[in-house]
Design a binder for these strands. Structure first.
Length: 417
RNA sequence: GUGGGUGUAGCUCAAUUGGUAGAGCGCCGGACUGUGGCUCCGGAUGUUGCGGGUUCAAUCCCCGUCACUCACCCCA
């Protein structure tokens, strides 16, 4: 046997219903909020993520499936969706043809990480992006939509966390304030934090090492360093969330790992997901489009991890629909008649199962039972002679004889009961 | 990349100080040749993750490796 690749997995029939449920709700939600779907390639130029996601991020530095193709170009499997969405938006000048550039995409992403609960090397994201609107009303709506996604999936106990990380004007001041406040205490922090204090001081807030917490607790809060414009923006975002009646927590420690975020950042955390508890995360990125060679347009969006949504889905969600009928053929003469009956029912839109191996009647009926089909349709020589079918309702055990011509109507009628 | 735990039938798990593998569920068939579920009877299936070592003998002990898993890290 040739096994599957580490960190990848087959989504098997027993679980695929849950996936279809998540994808179905996601697509429906996107449509209702006015988002248009975009499907971008799974492979992109490596530099798209180096410039977009950020050269300093772990994603780019050590998690990309990057390689040189036969033409000598540096290619990578996409580790996240946003840079691709921006590229597509810019490359096709989508703002010219879409009245309001709200885009979504659904598909696999790839990161070379150590697999863990809720974390795979090939994983799937729902990604939504809004381009060109700076008004905090969009931040509010995007966050409200993220919340609606979780709610409509029936996921309980999720927590919304928001923050503002400032903009190009005020973030440097805050970063400097962090470094100043840390001062000599840097030496007290863990190795990772010491590294972060140089590469990306904001990320110190992500640290979970208990010993570091007393120092981190005394660090300044980003909120107190926002410029007037960012402060106003953040206040407006919260007014919108309040108006929607959304419960949220403001956490000055919510600093997200991608370089491009400005102003609003947010996450929705799930319970019972283990350490990988972020169901979705996103924020505003007002300079990314320009940075990637496009016009100076703002952006905001989020990515939701489908594996994690599937994991968090309530028990019993996405159960597969049961078949309408299982055709049982008794004896050689009814072999073809049974097959034609199945074909006709399928053409009429009814989910129909049938056995292929000429099993005994008992065996076929056992299969009908196990298939959990609603009805067993018995077609033997008696029925053949009279142009009828014996219809047995599995749940009740009741059975009746129905004229072949009336069968579709009969099955449809009981289906909608 | 680092650390812990676990790898035995399709699934969940047994196997006594080391003596070459079993149960339940599931699957297939029969009892019941035109009536499923319940019951009873019968049946099939394993390179014990892989490779080495110790031993007369390894599922068991040792080493390596791979996979899964949890956590770190990272992030959806």
């Amino acid at each position: 046997m040739i096994p599957s690749i580490r960190g990848t997995r087959d989504i098997l029939p027993a679980e695929v219903g849950r996936w279809q449920r998540v994808e179905g709700v996601a697509r429906d939600l996107c449509a209702r909020y006015g988002y248009a779907e975009v499907r971008t390639p799974v492979i992109e130029r490596e530099e798209l993520f180096a410039k977009g996601t950020g050269e300093s991020t772990d994603i780019v530095q050590k998690e990309m499936y990057a390689f040189t193709d036969k033409g000598g170009d540096r290619i990578t499997l996409r580790p996240e969706a946003t840079p691709s969405m921006v590229r597509s938006f810019v490359e096709h000048a989508l703002e010219q043809e879409l009245p309001c550039a709200k885009l979504y995409s659904l598909g696999p992403m790839f990161r070379y990480e150590r697999p863990q609960k809720g974390r795979y090397r090939q994983f799937h994201q729902l990604d939504i992006e809004v381009f060109g609107i700076t008004d905090p009303a969009v931040d509010g709506e995007v966050i409200e939509m993220a919340s609606a996604l979780v709610t409509e999936l029936g996921i309980e106990g999720a927590e919304l966390v928001i923050n503002s990380v400032g903009c190009a004007a005020c973030r440097p001041r805050f970063t400097q304030a962090l470094i100043d406040a840390l001062g000599e205490r840097v030496a007290e922090l863990c190795g990772d934090c010491q590294r972060r204090s140089v590469t990306n001081p904001l990320r110190i807030f992500d640290c979970k090492v208990p010993a570091d917490q007393p120092v981190i607790d005394q660090l300044p809060h980003s909120e107190n360093f926002l410029c007037d414009a960012c402060r106003d923006h953040f206040a407006e975002v919260r007014r919108h969330l309040d108006a929607y009646g959304l419960a949220y927590r403001v956490s000055h420690r919510l600093v997200r790992g991608l370089d491009y975020y400005t102003r609003t950042t947010f996450e929705i955390l799930g319970t019972s997901l283990g350490a990988q508890n972020a169901l979705l995360g996103g924020g505003r990125y007002d300079h990314l489009v320009k940075q990637l060679g496009g016009p100076d347009r703002s952006g905001i969006g989020f990515a939701a991890g489908l594996e994690r949504l599937v994991l968090a889905l309530p028990e019993g969600a996405g159960e597969m629909d049961v078949a309408d009928a299982f055709v049982v053929a008794l004896g050689d003469p009814s072999w073809f008649a049974a097959r034609i009956l199945a074909r006709d029912l399928r053409r009429a839109g009814l989910t129909t199962l049938i056995d292929y191996e000429g099993r005994s009647s008992k065996s076929q009926m056992k299969r009908a039972n196990r298939s959990r089909a609603r009805h067993m349709l018995i077609l033997g020589e008696d029925e053949l002679a009279t142009n009828q079918v014996t219809v047995k309702t599995m749940e009740t055990g009741e059975q009746q004889t129905v004229a072949r011509a009336d069968l579709v109507a009969h099955l449809r009628a009981v289906r909608t009961d």
